[in-house]
Design a protein around this nucleic acid. Structure first.
Length: 882
DNA sequence: TTCTTCACG
DNA sequence: ACGTACGTGAAGAAG
């Protein structure tokens, strides 16, 4: 069987990929979509072809150079966008790492290289697949050379294949004639002028009739159409030149031997590291275990269940200056405890597995002892591990997860493998790779060796990464933030999660049941009015029913169909009863599925729900709440708000709920230093009314409700990074009006404008925004050449310092409130945080003390130019306390 | 999985 | 000309 060769047109495929794959970038802000798309296309082709040889050709001159030439000629082509340009060296690096031969030679176009290699391969008896986004190469097609043109359509890549006969089928000319066809018609994407007045249609007719350029000119007089005949006669030079330009050279002198382009294993350790950096997570699975395993270190990991060995391990860790630990467990239950990993030095690593006398209790007891002695301990994700630690103070601990988050809060997830790679330049295998889908306990029993490697490298990485991360926190001036806010908060969040919040299951059930009747009623009515049964929950079906079948106005919007979002439907509701019923249905269905049914699943012992409070999710420094999300319990609409009645304090307790009054606007007043805004807050009057009075030049008492509402929207808009379009949408006014409001606002509070402009400027300079407490948020979008993305970056640069500072402040308040409750030996517990609000389950005899603590600690959490005010309420459920 | 919608601050 | 408010998480539909 003949051997196969795949040749790839580098720039052309990269270009295709860039425009076909949605924008992607890694944590460093490097754009990666073109590289990603390129690799996907390449892997797909390689899987299909399974070739023995592979090469990628590039032009030596960046395509921009050719585009420049072209621009002179026609002046239409845009230069290569920066986002693509920066990916050119990256793909070359990736190919090099994978051992793929890249061919480029001064003075040669990629086409010439490809043509030469293809013909040479064919001559040596190979089957050649030539991959390009360009049709130029069709002239190379033969019975053994297949031109493959990938098309990305809606995320899917389809490939058109052309052997010689396929070219004839598609273009009615042979590959060789294709050159002259192009010479006649020119090429808009290349630098080929062609003959004026001759387009694709005429060119094809001529070639079909006469077979060649020479023959066309030999029979010029036979050509009936006068204008064409004259143009051909006048432009023979141009036709000849075009033919030269269009001809791909297949006889170039290349120093390429088949040996150089023979296929090797692509999935090398070097490639693995690069893929990690580029965050091509779903490509990592292609790497073989053996290829990436670091064997040198593995041998020093010591896994044991021997009591004496364990004692040695703890003794060593106790002697060491610092140590690392990691509890490996699937849940807090005894039987789900897989191991405790300990590192006292890079070559002193133990994985202690409970068995026989070596119990979980013993291991965790010894861990607690180790911590009690004050040993400096680093770990990954300390929050759940506090189950085995006694400390209220966190100074001796270092959570590498928290550090990694502070250093780059934009990542989607943080794994030990990432930290190993980023901090140590070390490739370690992920849990998924080593243990597959097994639980830790199962893996420890059934895949001992893999488990040892996983646990060993994890704690090894933690141990080694700690000093490096610490130094980076210092360099970025975030050590204080880390030590004083984030680490203490890990402890607070652990206890909040553990505490949970009580709900009344029967009342929740009753609430859900009450919704069902009305939901069914609405469903029937809607189906009746629509004249058919359909799924109202399906935006697709709903859109079709409303805008096609019933022909309601205002259709069209999203890519996939009609928008049926609330703001669209609300405009139609007054006129069409079915629409208001749909809106009501939607509201009820949401309450039922997300809240009534959704929360019920999470009710545990003592009727309590334990949410997870995530500290490493948001870009701005806020915390988030999952499984379930207790930060989005309904509030704005009365019917939804009633759900809060099922959230109750335990017997003998009440809720105390305190929320900051406009904390973000007060932060803005402080950070901007705007005297007017500060003064407005000092006067202690309704801030939105004051703003309305100033912005609309109306005496304070005469401000209308509408004016106040508008001013409030502007206040919000400012915090979001105002845009006239956004404001106009929110208020349903014209963009022009919105611009006027904003202009007036900035005239009223001139330093606010200065501040926002400065924040954008600084973020552009530094590449990140920064809060009062030093928290950073990178804003890579500011460098984008895309208007929309850049505008987004500007809004982010305005919002992040404000939202982030507010987040810092409430975190400080949480730590202080929690500490006071502890220090004063109160029974009351902090149980929830909702961004600007704290909920304390308060013992009835501690009501006054708790209120005083919350008031003091929340107000004094930060020292601003304006006071921080709170609204505090007490109640026998969450509804009443808010 | 990805998209759309909608709940909160 | 571009087509958006900032930050989240969950559910349901559809690919």
């Amino acid at each position: 069987m003949s051997k196969k060769m795949v040749l790839i047109d580098g720039h052309s495929i990269l270009n295709r990929a860039f425009y076909g794959v949605p924008d992607l970038s890694n944590a460093q802000g490097l754009h990666t979509n073109a590289v990603y798309g390129f690799l996907n296309i390449m892997f797909k082709i390689l899987e299909e072809e399974k070739p023995e040889f592979l090469a990628v050709a590039f032009d030596v001159h960046a395509p921009t150079f050719r585009h420049e030439l072209y621009k002179e000629y026609k002046g239409t082509r845009k230069p290569m966008p920066e986002e693509l340009r920066e990916q050119v060296p990256v793909i070359k690096e990736v190919l090099k790492a994978m051992g793929v031969c890249t061919v480029e030679k001064a003075g040669l176009e990629a086409d010439d290289i490809l043509g030469t290699l293809a013909k040479k391969g064919e001559k040596d008896g190979m089957e050649v697949a030539l991959v390009s986004g360009d049709r130029d190469l069709l002239q190379i097609a033969s019975n053994h050379i297949k031109i493959r043109i990938p098309k990305t359509k809606g995320g899917k890549t389809e490939i058109e294949d052309y052997y010689a006969k396929d070219v004839e089928d598609a273009y009615q000319v042979t590959p060789v004639q294709f050159i002259e066809l192009k010479a006649l018609m020119g090429d808009s994407s290349d630098n080929i002028p062609g003959v004026p007045k001759v387009g694709p249609k005429t060119a094809t007719e001529l070639m079909v009739q006469y077979g060649s350029l020479d023959n066309i000119y030999a029979h010029l007089d036979d050509i009936s159409k006068k204008s064409i005949r004259e143009s051909l006669a006048e432009n023979k030079d141009l036709a000849d030149l075009s033919k030269v330009l269009a001809t791909i050279h297949t006889d170039c002198d290349l120093d390429v031997t088949w040996d150089m382009v023979s296929m090797q294993d692509l999935f090398t350790p070097e490639a693995y590291t690069l893929f990690k950096q580029l965050e091509f997570k779903n490509l990592l699975g292609r790497f073989e275990e053996e290829a990436v395993t670091q064997n040198s270190q593995k041998d020093s990991f010591f896994m044991t269940s021997d009591l004496t060995e364990a004692e040695t391990a703890f003794a060593e860790a106790g002697k060491a200056e610092r140590a690392a630990f990691l509890v490996l467990e699937d849940s807090g239950k005894d039987e789900d405890f897989a191991a405790l990993a300990l590192a006292a030095a890079p070559d002193k690593i133990w994985i202690l597995r409970p068995q026989g006398f070596l119990t979980k209790e013993y291991l965790t007891g010894k861990l607690a002892e180790l911590a009690d002695k004050g040993t400096k301990l680093s770990t990954f994700q300390i929050k759940p591990q506090y189950a085995y630690l006694n400390q209220d103070e966190t100074g001796q601990f270092f959570d590498v997860l928290i550090a990694a988050y502070l250093l780059n809060p934009l990542k989607n997830d943080y794994s030990i493998e990432d930290i190993a790679n980023e901090q140590l330049g070390l490739m370690i295998q992920s849990r998924q790779q080593l243990l597959e889908k097994l639980s830790l306990t199962k893996a420890a029993q059934e895949k001992e060796e893999a488990f040892q490697e996983y646990a060993g490298f994890a704690v090894y990485t933690i141990f080694l990464a700690q000093p490096l991360l610490q130094e980076k926190l210092q360099e970025t001036e975030m050590e204080n933030l880390f030590r004083e806010i984030e680490m203490p908060l890990t402890r607070v969040l652990h206890e909040m999660e553990k505490e949970g919040v009580e709900v009344r299951p029967e009342e929740l059930k009753a609430y859900g049941d009450a919704l069902v009747d009305r939901i069914n009623e609405l469903e029937n009515s809607i189906h009746k009015q629509a004249g058919e049964d359909f799924n109202i929950n399906s935006p697709k079906q709903l859109g079709e029913v409303l805008f096609e079948k019933m022909k309601l106005p205002g259709g069209k919007k999203t890519k996939t169909g009609y928008s049926t979002a609330a703001d669209v439907l609300e405009k139609l509701a007054p006129e069409f009863p079915i629409v208001s019923e749909i809106l009501e249905y939607r509201g009820l269905a949401k309450l039922k599925s997300t809240y009534a049914d959704g929360l019920a699943v999470y009710i545990g012992e003592n009727n309590r729900i334990h949410t997870t409070l995530n500290q490493t999710i948001t870009a701005t420094g806020r915390i988030s709440s999952t499984e379930p999300n207790l930060q989005n319990i309904p509030m704005r609409m009365e019917l939804g708000r009633l759900i809060r009645k099922v959230f109750v304090p335990k017997e003998g307790y009440l809720f105390t709920d305190a929320d900051y009054s406009q904390i973000e606007l007060r932060v803005l007043a402080h950070m901007s230093g705007d005297e007017q805004l500060i003064e407005a807050y000092r006067s202690d009057a309704d801030i939105h009314r004051i703003t309305a009075s100033k912005v609309f030049h109306t005496p304070f008492e005469q401000v209308t409700d509408l004016q106040r509402r508008n001013a409030k929207a502007v206040n919000f808009g400012i915090v979001y990074g105002i845009s006239s379009f956004g404001l106009s949408q929110d208020l349903s006014i014209s963009r022009k009006e919105a611009s006027q409001y904003i202009e007036e606002y900035f005239k009223t509070y001139p330093k606010v404008k200065e501040f926002l402009d400065e924040e954008v400027e600084k973020a552009k300079e530094n590449g990140y925004s920064i809060t009062m407490f030093g928290r950073r948020r990178p804003v890579p979008e500011l460098k984008s050449s895309n208007f929309m993305q850049r505008s987004f970056g500007e809004r982010v640069a305005m919002n992040a310092p404000i939202q982030g500072t507010a987040a810092d402040i409430i975190k400080i308040a949480m730590i202080r409130v929690w500490k006071r409750l502890k220090e004063e030996n109160l029974k009351s517990r902090l149980i929830l945080q909702i961004h600007d609000e704290l909920l304390v389950e308060t013992a009835q005899d501690e009501l006054e003390q708790v209120a005083a603590i919350m008031e003091k600690e929340m107000k004094n959490a930060a020292d601003l130019a304006v006071s921080l005010e709170i609204d505090l309420h007490t109640g026998k459920n969450w509804y009443e306390a808010k």
